[in-house]
Amino acid sequence: MSGSAPIIASTHPNDGLLRADRFPHILCPGCGIGTVIHCYVDAMAASGLALSDHACVSGIGCSGRAAGYVNVDSYHTTHGRALPFALGIAVYKPGMRVTVISGDGDLAAIGGNHLIHAARRNVDLTVICINNFNYGMTGGQAGPTSPRGSVASTAPEGVHDRPFVLPDLVRAAGASMVSRWTVLHVRQLRDAILRGMQKRGFCFIEALSPCPTNFGRANDLGDGMAEMEVYRERCELADGTPGYDALDIDLTDHTRPILVGDFLDIERTPYQPVGEHTA
């Protein structure tokens, strides 16, 4: 949108849910992170709970800035450590709905050990992992979800490593709920976040999101809108719980579908350490 566009409304219905005094935000035009934040605050409003019942925790990176824009108790922690921080709040105040919003590099690389253990324990958290296939904030380095062959500043000849397929990883680790949507699927994304808030246990939602500034540019995906076009053309709703190979993503291979959906939603006893006196 051009800088000279007329202001069409001085307030937005979600202003009370956002730290509007922090705008303009730092995100690039065409970035998908703002859409995820919007889905989160919509879900928060739909949860019917007071804002004081919600907390939001982020790590480091562009996605890690999410906590700074939502008008709840919000904590912007160190790189990779959003999950144990959130665990501390969720275990001490089990009545609160604690949501972690962070990126793929933060949650799955430097924070990968915390991710699998939080899923294993089934800690009562909703985790929104914004996956843009690279480290955006630091200029487009390869990460644990970068598809093989994709170009990054630390993989100028293309990524050789096999990526994590996050929904498969956290499902295997023991999560209660696992979904994958893209920032094109705003309703499904919002609904998945809301279900995560309502459910007790470890709920993981992967949100595929364009990073036109870095991943998109390095891999000739065009601007943010063009990557959304890829999602529109290639996303298919998965049946049941697909495994690693089916969920693996290659944005440059136009013959392969990108599977999205609510892959898992089961009842598992949520983590809550209790003493013998309360047993």
């Binding site: 904590y75 450590r81 144990p84 921080f85 501390g88 003493g275 309360t278």
Partner: peptide
Amino acid sequence: PRVGGKFVQMEDELGSAVAIIGASAA
């Protein structure tokens, strides 16, 4: 646990130190 507190054996010391900060924030 017998006096109403929470004991969590974390996955490593990185997580331990951050978990206690989170709990303290609450």
